[in-house]
Design a protein around this nucleic acid. Structure first.
Lengths: 213, 213
DNA sequence: TAGATTGTTAATCGATTAACAATC
DNA sequence: TAGATTGTTAATCGATTAACAATC
């Protein structure tokens, strides 16, 4: 029963629409058009309509999108219905930055705990979140029903952490360590490699310099 | 004279190849095949050959890729020839995490300074990098010939920071603030929005849960 | 020569864009 | 009715994959 699912690039844009709508709602807007969203986000209006068409029919022809209706639709599509918890493994600078990061709350997401094996870090509190020893991770995940995990450890430790997360029942993982990991079939795994992003950026610098020279 | 340029998805993978080759070289390997790289990185060998074909002809039919030759080719393509400096604006947790992050050095990249306007942060040293007041940013960029900037400030401040970077002569910007920014024509601007990445991940969790239910 | 592996061409797949009928 | 704007279809564009001749 494999429903087609939302294409990856579209899915990546839905959270942007969501955040825009939250802000529009706070600003008192009741209705917005794909054109207006496109202007604000720097995307073609046709692309936004196409993306939203993968959800239910949420707009009104001739009128636009009701902010509340579209927010509900996006919440439903993304599975942000209830407050969602996430854990971070690795309580170094990056892990601490994530725990302190306010940006997750718009989406009703919250880092609930950090895990690390460094005795110097265990017992710390970061932005109100405890740093716990790794061996408590499975029980915490189980007890709190956590489904999302973020890996913020060095590359050499990352695969072991991913394995532990999978064993603990985590359903989706965002890996920030500079290593390509694997996870069993049913678990969704994505990589974000900031150093590689920066290295790719250097290409455009060189390219630009050439055009001028 | 617009040379075609490397397609975006391919470009994003080149740094992965580069890092793999650095490690292969350290392990004493002299030659690697696209098949071996594919195995290690979880990518199809055909895709790797295609990506590398956008550079010069760097492999040897029937033999494989010489590690040193391919490293040189990638360095040349990505513009990693000389040590490259980058600045970070925003010396909060995320900015400090970036300054402390060891992963940039494989690519010969280095965060040289942080900038912030918080008097409590100015004067600090983070992993050997000074935190300087914003007004020193343009002179620093000019003096050190910096071309890359990373934005790690709150969303409300991000556009002003981008404008300041552009004015200072930065050529490419990686924006980590949860806001869509604009920059003038000649400047390359990319967005990485970790909260949105996590929100998109939640979709797969819900999807998985449905399949089982 | 036989086996291995690249670089490239062609086929396939999927996403973006444009256009417009449906609807308010 | 005239003007606005969606949702969808079709056209275009671009990336991935497969296949294989060229080469070692």
């Amino acid at each position: 029963m494999d429903r087609p699912g939302i294409p990856r690039p579209s899915l990546g844009r839905l959270p942007l629409y969501y955040r825009f709508l939250v802000q529009a709602g706070e600003a008192g807007r009741a209705v917005v058009s794909s054109d207006e969203m496109g202007q604000a986000l720097g995307l073609p209006a046709a692309q936004i309509r196409k993306d939203l068409s993968y959800l239910r029919e949420l707009g009104r022809r001739g009128v636009g999108y009701d902010v509340g209706v579209l927010l509900d639709g996006l919440r439903e599509a993304l599975g942000l219905g209830h407050q969602k918890g996430a854990i971070v493994v690795g309580a170094g600078h990056l892990g601490q930055a994530l725990a302190s990061y306010a940006g997750f709350s718009v989406y009703g997401m919250r880092i609930v705990a950090l895990f690390d094996d460094d005795p110097a870090k265990i017992g710390m509190w970061v932005a109100g979140r405890p740093v716990l020893p790794m061996h408590l991770m499975p029980a915490t995940v189980l007890r709190l029903g956590i489904q999302l995990g973020i890996i913020a450890v060095p590359a050499w430790a990352a695969q072991a952490v991913a394995d532990a997360m999978v064993a603990a029942g985590i359903m989706a993982i965002l890996n920030l360590a500079p290593a390509r990991l694997s996870a069993s079939q049913g678990v969704w795994l994505e990589h974000e490699d900031l150093a590689s992003r920066l290295a790719a950026l250097a290409y455009h610098v060189r390219r630009r310099a050439e055009t001028e020279g």
